[in-house]
Computed example of a mutant assay.
Amino acid sequence: MTEPDDDLSAPHRPGDDWRCRDDGEAWPCPIFRRRMRLLYPDDPHRLAAFMRHFRDKAAPALPELSAKQVEARFIGWINDPPPRRLRIV
């Protein structure tokens, strides 16, 4: 049985409100972040450059967030250790 975050084939794209179209989470959602960690496992600087594009595009659409909050949401997670996944057997 697969877990919801095992579905890396779904796009997990942001909607106009910068929420994930697939799971409704604030984008970048946990599944998208996991996918990006898999795509850029040894290059956090390149991943940060990629995510800065989205940060810059999203910031005007998120006036309720401070610049620091936008930075944390789009870039701040990159150097965090990936979350441990629990398997229910």
Rank of each mutant, 00 (worst) to 15 (best):
M1G: 15
M1Q: 07
T2E: 06
T2G: 10
T2N: 08
E3N: 11
E3I: 09
P4T: 04
P4G: 03
P4F: 08
D5H: 11
D5L: 11
D5Q: 12
D5N: 12
D6E: 13
D7R: 06
D7C: 05
D7E: 08
L8P: 01
S9P: 02
S9A: 09
S9I: 10
S9E: 14
A10S: 09
A10D: 09
A10G: 06
P11M: 09
R13E: 10
R13H: 14
P14Q: 11
P14H: 07
G15S: 06
G15N: 15
D16V: 14
D17K: 05
D17F: 06
W18Q: 03
W18R: 01
R19M: 07
C20V: 02
R21T: 10
D22T: 11
D22E: 14
D23F: 02
D23H: 06
G24Q: 07
A26Q: 14
A26T: 11
W27Y: 02
W27D: 00
W27S: 00
P28N: 03
P28R: 02
P28G: 05
C29D: 00
C29V: 02
C29F: 01
C29T: 05
C29W: 00
P30M: 03
I31F: 02
R33G: 00
R33D: 01
R33S: 01
R37C: 06
L38Q: 09
P41K: 11
P41E: 14
P41F: 04
D42F: 08
D42E: 12
P44I: 05
P44E: 12
P44F: 07
P44V: 03
H45F: 15
H45R: 12
H45S: 10
R46A: 13
R46L: 15
R46N: 12
R46Y: 07
L47F: 04
A49K: 09
A49F: 10
M51H: 03
R52T: 15
R52E: 10
H53L: 14
D56L: 13
K57D: 13
A58F: 07
A58C: 05
A58I: 04
A59I: 06
A59H: 05
P60C: 04
L62A: 04
L62T: 04
L62V: 04
P63N: 05
E64D: 15
E64R: 15
L65W: 03
L65T: 01
S66I: 05
S66Q: 11
S66F: 01
A67M: 14
A67V: 10
K68R: 11
K68T: 09
E71I: 04
A72R: 15
A72G: 10
A72Y: 15
R73L: 01
R73G: 02
R73K: 05
F74W: 04
F74K: 00
F74S: 00
I75N: 01
G76K: 00
G76S: 02
G76F: 03
W77R: 01
W77V: 03
I78F: 02
I78N: 01
N79M: 12
N79I: 07
D80Q: 10
P81I: 08
P82Y: 05
R85Y: 09
R85C: 13
R85A: 13
R85W: 04
L86G: 09
L86S: 15
L86I: 15
L86D: 10
R87C: 10
R87P: 10
R87V: 09
I88N: 11
I88Q: 13
V89R: 15
V89Y: 08
